[in-house]
Design a protein around this nucleic acid. Structure first.
Lengths: 270, 270
DNA sequence: ATTTAACATCTTGTCTGACAAATTTGGCGC
DNA sequence: GCGCCAAATTTGTCAGACAAGATGTTAAAT
């Protein structure tokens, strides 16, 4: 029964929501700024949704959307019945678009990965625990097994490299390598499943893997680094040898499958 | 005493929302899964919020929250009046918590950064454009300027390293280094502002920077890599020389932020 | 007096309905 | 076919209500 414009209710507008792109985004931005300005310290409970709505002159829905953004950004956490809190450990996030992979972008990613894997191999040689070394060996055996079973062995290959990164005992290596693995997964698979190349390649790959493993087992960091560097250089060479093939296959796959993955919401504990 | 499910209103439940942690999260997960399963291809418009609500047996609010999560995760985009669409280029995200910096975590990050900066220096030597070299020189001059002005020069120092990463002409290097810079910013500042150490340190730092710059300017990738490696090893040494100082300062900064009762069971599920 | 149990209150999560704003669609005249 | 306008569609925002869970207070019990 009140067809008046929606903002006439505010006799004294507490804060005129400036017309703009997205109201909830503006609010999220202002809240984010306020948090980083230290208005509420780490772990502090921030005002209730109703209070924030009044403060910004908006409805609770918008406040909830804004807080949802901050929550997804890792800046706040919410507990039902209790409130929303500034995160104890704010997070920064690095995002990577996953377009249709082309040779250029794959090469760029490999360029970044190479020094990381080399260093990871060096650290793994120096720090690996017995169980970690065992896991690397198992991963290598899994590759053979998968290949003999006629599979591409891509997942097992990635698992091998991941086991090495784990043995470096520095979680950042696994995190970054996992991150870029999501990007490389498809591209690697494309080259590896190329039938004509697989047989000759696999011999090389196995030998190179063995060299890395031996160096790590021997605790020789320098040798492990060299072996890893060699392996990755050869991997790039192998990739470059089948560029047309790569592009063909990618093109064929474009229509149906959307390659991607985002962990928008974290893992469920149960 | 009557725990009748709140969904008794639905005579035929289209899809019983299983009891769980967060309803909207479940829906977001299921939507994410459906997208990755290819139910809707890239750029496709997904069903209206009302339709999704009916499909999952939930209200539009929850659908909106779920879609909001996916949107923040870079998986979908929404256009008012038009609909919500699967993103053309989905993204993966890497997240890093920024706790109160302790020596251990800083060292781990530096361990990851070192091979990246070394490789970036090598690539910069081989690929830099004249304007990029100019920018590196300017950044180095800015450090001196800032230090003479009594500032810490931290921002200028980071800008110097960033200019090198830019000259590598591989965007992933700048992205990852920027990412970890957010983490290191505070820690570096703490050590650098240590008055007693600054004078002697700055001479070393300037000399090491100069060596990197000369190698890059000469186009000598190997020399640039060596100079960068030396610089970063020394940086870690300098950091380790003032561990107590670091911890002191960090402790001093914690006071301002009210650290309320830390729930033992609290933890963070994400 | 201390511990335990019930209660009142507060806060976020979800539901429902409505309207606003922007886009898409269809029809109409030409 | 093309341009223009109105209607239908869809997301964004508002408003109010209840449910679910957490917190703090009070009363009871030992």
């Amino acid at each position: 029964m009140n067809p008046e414009p929606r903002n006439s209710r505010v006799s004294e507008t507490p804060d005129p929501p400036s017309r703009g792109p997205q109201l909830s985004e503006q609010v999220a931005q202002r809240l984010s700024d306020a948090i980083q300005a230290g208005e509420w310290g780490r772990g502090a409970r921030l005002p209730t949704e109703a209070a924030l709505g009044e403060r910004f002159g908006i409805s609770r829905s918008v406040v909830r959307e804004a807080i949802s953004m901050l929550r997804n950004g890792g800046l706040v956490t919410s507990r039902r019945g209790s409130g929303s809190f500034v995160a104890e450990s704010p997070t920064v996030s690095l995002r990577l678009a996953i377009p249709d992979p082309d040779l250029q972008s794959v090469v760029e990613v490999l360029e970044l990965r190479r020094p990381l894997e080399v260093e990871a191999a060096r650290l793994a040689a120096e720090r690996h625990t017995p169980s970690q070394l065992r896991r690397i060996r198992n991963a290598m055996a899994d590759i053979d097994e998968a290949v003999e079973a006629g599979l591409s062995g891509v997942d097992q290959d990635l698992a091998f490299h991941r086991a090495i990164a784990e043995a470096a005992n520095n979680s950042h290596f696994t995190a970054v390598l996992d991150f870029y693995n999501r990007f490389l997964h498809q591209a690697i698979r494309v080259t590896r499943t190329n039938e004509s190349l697989r047989d000759t390649f696999m011999q090389q790959v196995v030998a190179e893997h063995q060299a890395i493993l031996d160096a790590i087992a021997a605790g020789d960091g320098e040798a492990a680094a060299r072996a890893a560097a060699t392996h990755l250089e050869h991997a790039e060479t192998r990739l470059r040898q089948a560029p047309t093939d790569l592009l063909e296959r990618v093109e064929a796959q474009r229509g149906s499958a959307s390659i991607s993955s985002t962990e928008s919401t974290g893992g469920n504990s149960r």
